[in-house]
């Protein structure tokens, strides 16, 4: 298999690397050219000192955290309960978790706007706070496949039946079992689901724009239409943030008790 291939594969990898790295370098170089004739961090200073930048970023960060909390509260008890008590419901629950992959965000928010609009029984879009709730619900839906997959894999790696048995024979209530035993054991899985959710929601454009929320995604698009150098700086900042999140996720993922799909006979046998 390996005869004579390294030249060809080296060329392919170098071409791939060039394709991936040139746009990053270009954006970086572009972002330094705001002052004519010299390299400066002026574009970054301009972005970071803008109050709109801070307020939209804060808004989106809060919305993302709300979506993470809501998603975890929804997914963890459900996956636990279905694995423990309702195995026959599992295909349904899993199918529902995959549905967002075939519903494009623009279609989802279209349905939300119509269903929760002015003449609905639950007119969420009529108030600002109601629209914020709807935005967070939309984000929970968008990130559901990733959160579900992460938690489900984490739950498969621990023996929830034995843990539940142990907790209850020590007198723990159902709620306490979930909060005190199951949650900590799938913590790393939740964290990796949370990072994915965060990276999806922070710069999200479609939902935020169509719901008229002062979020980071619409701000970035507006900035791209009005300015030249600041968007390049934003691209670099955003790439750095994505990179940091993924690095943190890798860190947490490798620290999980085991990433096998099947539960081992005894828990935590894998390093």
């Amino acid at each position: 298999m390996r005869r004579g291939t390294p030249i060809l594969s080296t060329v392919i990898v170098l071409l791939g690397a060039a394709y991936f790295l040139v746009p990053l370098y270009a954006a970086f170089q572009f972002s330094l050219q705001m002052k004519r004739g010299e390299l400066s961090l002026e574009a970054y200073r301009s972005v970071l000192s803008s109050s709109v930048f801070l307020s939209t970023l804060t808004f989106s960060a809060v919305a993302s955290f709300a979506a993470i909390a809501m998603g975890a509260l929804l997914v963890v008890p459900t996956v636990y309960w279905v694995r423990l008590k309702l195995p026959r419901l599992r295909p349904v629950v899993e199918f529902l978790s995959l549905l967002p992959l075939i519903i494009p965000p623009v279609v989802l928010v279209f349905g939300h706007i119509r269903l929760f609009g002015s003449n609905s029984v639950l007119p969420l879009t009529m108030t600002a706070s109601g629209t914020n709730v709807l935005l967070v619900m939309g984000y929970v839906v968008l990130s559901l496949p990733y959160m579900f997959r992460a938690v489900d894999n984490g739950m498969a790696a621990i023996d929830i039946r034995t843990l539940t048995e142990a907790a209850e024979s020590l007198g723990a209530s159902r709620i306490r079992t979930i909060a005190g035993v199951i949650f900590p054991n799938v913590r790393s899985a939740i964290v990796s689901g949370a990072f994915l959710t965060f990276s999806i929601c922070l710069g999200e454009f479609v939902l935020a724009s169509l719901l008229n929320r002062p979020a980071f995604g619409p701000y970035m698009v507006q900035l791209g239409q009005d300015y030249a150098y600041e968007p390049a700086a934003l691209a670099i900042l955003s790439f750095a943030l994505t990179w940091t999140l993924m690095a943190l996720m890798q860190l947490f993922a490798t620290r999980s008790p085991g990433r096998r799909r099947r539960a081992p006979l005894k828990t935590s046998t894998t390093p």
Binding site: T78, V93, L108, G111, R114, V140, L144
Partner: peptide, 22 residues
């Protein structure tokens, strides 16, 4: 089955119903 109700209610309200409406 009540244990799965929050999840089923959420997906019904924010995913299935909007698509059904469309």
């Amino acid at each position: 089955w009540l244990g799965a109700l929050p999840y089923l209610a959420f997906t019904a309200l924010f995913m299935v119903a909007p698509v059904f409406y469309l």
